[in-house]
Design a protein around this nucleic acid. Structure first.
Length: 294
RNA sequence: CCCCGAAUUCUACU
């Protein structure tokens, strides 16, 4: 409890100190810190703790495997990921839905979509996250019709789509040949009340930039209860896509949040609209402002 | 023996 309290406050050194002072740390003492390290991009620390734990003859459990896989997902480490998979199989931990879900996430992230789908097929208890991971795998592999098939099957299996399912399937709809699928999904989104969700709203902005008109975009944007830097950048892209360069430039100056992608959106928008010289001006200006260029 | 503590997946540029 003390360790997790420190970790919730972001106090890793204090948490490690507690661990060091414990006479009999258990699997949760280690796993909670490993999980924190994996999520904070401290893969080396996470692995060191795992080694230390095994040296003390404390065996990893389901939570440990998920934490280790989180680590593999962050660093796209398919070697370690496969080893974790083997160890999880040996200890029968793949029957745990969370472990199999994390394995799927790891394989999708590493580009091994078929491995992820194999894990999915072998699962006996699939939850919404399992379906979401499979759908994401299909989308990452550009298998959009199969993504929609899974999305429909999920409903037939009594699992309700959530914000993850819908933002993912909307990104598939954006890649389709026509907008019909996406419009059907939008209707469903409204029906279940997820049109007020930030990620879903952002995915809708993206969809209507491809298949709608400016009014559709503004309709979605204006009704969003919260907006983040992705929302603002999507709207900027939308203006540029519909040739409203002045509005895009004005938006860029008024956006409450922007990042390097917003800069690229404005720059590429100028170029796509045949305004290369404006783009060049903008580029010179941000160089003069000391921007880091990649 | 009981209780408590550690859990994976989504959306924008290149």
């Amino acid at each position: 409890s003390l360790i997790s309290t420190y970790l919730n406050l972001g106090l890793l050194p204090e948490a490690l100190k507690v661990l060091d002072e414990m006479s009999f740390p258990d699997v949760a003492s280690f796993t909670s810190i490993i999980s924190y390290c994996a999520k904070s991009g401290m893969e080396g620390e996470a692995f060191a703790l795992l080694t230390r734990m095994r040296d003390m003859d404390i065996h990893p459990n389901e939570f440990s495997f998920v934490a280790m896989l989180t680590n593999c997902i962050r660093q796209c480490n398919r070697q370690l990921g496969s080893q974790v998979h083997c160890l999880a199989l040996k200890t029968h931990c793949t029957t745990c839905t969370h472990v199999s879900n994390a394995l799927m996430g790891m394989y999708v992230k590493c580009g091994l979509v078929d491995c992820a789908l194999q894990v999915f097929d072998e699962m006996s208890d699939r939850d919404v996250s399992s379906w979401n991971a499979a759908i994401l795998g299909m989308v990452e592999d550009c298998r959009y019709s199969e993504a929609f098939e899974l999305f429909d099957n999920m409903g037939s299996n009594g699992k309700f789509a959530d914000r993850f399912s819908l933002s993912t399937i909307l990104s598939a709809a954006t890649e389709c040949q026509s907008g019909g699928e996406g419009e059907t999904v939008h209707a469903y989104v409204i029906k279940i009340g997820l049109d007020m969700d930030l990620s879903v709203g952002n995915a809708l902005l993206e969809f209507y930039t491809r298949f709608g008109i400016m009014e559709d975009l503004l309709y979605v944007f204006d009704r969003m209860p919260q907006r983040d830097v992705i929302s603002w950048t999507c709207l900027l892209n939308g203006f540029m896509e519909f040739g409203l360069v002045e509005s895009a430039a004005e938006l860029f100056n008024q956006m409450p949040e922007k990042n390097h992608i917003s800069y690229n959106a404005l720059l590429s928008g100028y170029c796509k609209n045949g305004l290369g010289s404006k783009g060049l001006d903008f580029f010179r200006r941000i160089l003069a402002d000391g921007a880091e260029i990649s």
